[in-house]
Design a protein around this nucleic acid. Sequence first.
DNA 1: TATAATTATCTCGAATTCGAGATAAAGGAT
DNA 2: ATCCTTTATCTCGAATTCGAGATAATTATA
Lengths: 151, 151
Amino acid sequence: METPEFCTEDGNLSLKLFVVLTRALQSVEEKVMQDIKGHGLNLTEFAVLELLYHKGDQPIQKIGEKVLLASSSITYVVDKLEKKGYLARIACPNDRRVTFASITTIGINLMDEIFPKHKEAIRQIMGGLNMEEKQFVIEELKKLGYYAKNL
Amino acid sequence: METPEFCTEDGNLSLKLFVVLTRALQSVEEKVMQDIKGHGLNLTEFAVLELLYHKGDQPIQKIGEKVLLASSSITYVVDKLEKKGYLARIACPNDRRVTFASITTIGINLMDEIFPKHKEAIRQIMGGLNMEEKQFVIEELKKLGYYAKNL
DNA sequence: TATAATTATCTCGAATTCGAGATAAAGGAT
DNA sequence: ATCCTTTATCTCGAATTCGAGATAATTATA
């Protein structure tokens, strides 16, 4: 099975893309984490709290689907946010298998305070590209991710 | 401190870029991991072994710098690769603080077999973009990552 | 030379994630 | 009504990563 020349080129380019993609996210994520850690949360906790803040109460399982975590991991994260007082578990009256996670007033107050800062922090972290470039990269990454996911 | 309108736009775009970047890498990484897991390694182990395979023996600390892992994590990964017989620790004769990690013949044989397959797998995973697009995204991600890292 | 600062590696415990399996409730089919 | 399948959550143990601190060797400084 011979590999044509253009495939080798494409292979090298793809390899490079994988490395660059990994490195770029690593750099970005580190800065984002610094921002969030300063508010006593980690990236996962923030993602869950942000989901409840913007989308309202969610069955625990739905959270897992949205933030791409296994159900066992969600239990862990929700436990931690509950202990910190930022969310509460609320039993579903219709379906007793289901537990809703619901952001508390304290949680809302926290997000009211930190979300605008978070958004601004990300805007600065992403400062390496102008708006047009961001728009373009977003489209390209969507294509890339969509294709890879459905392989 | 008022935030001008265009900054809000930029903020939303940046937020979206962060989400899309994260999702794209997640999709890609999952497929890459599937490929590598099939050969009895995980992503980190593969990265370390690949470094030694292509760049030769490395002081253990250098490995950490290259693959972006803490020294304690490197100890763990090197331990595992050593147990599997793919690398050996070799004391540095000049500086007795230093230990080199060196890929064994068995490790080389493994990489000879799986690296071409790995490269082809990544080429397929990255099939959502053509070569021109890949080249462009690489440049943009480099800018993005470089800027973020040096904030 | 003796001391201090630096460097490389390792040990240990905590945090985070996952997968497998347990439990319990709902829904569907006979 | 009973049994089977599906669904939602949780428990548990393993894997992986990190940070703090230990150890030991090297280098710089007084």
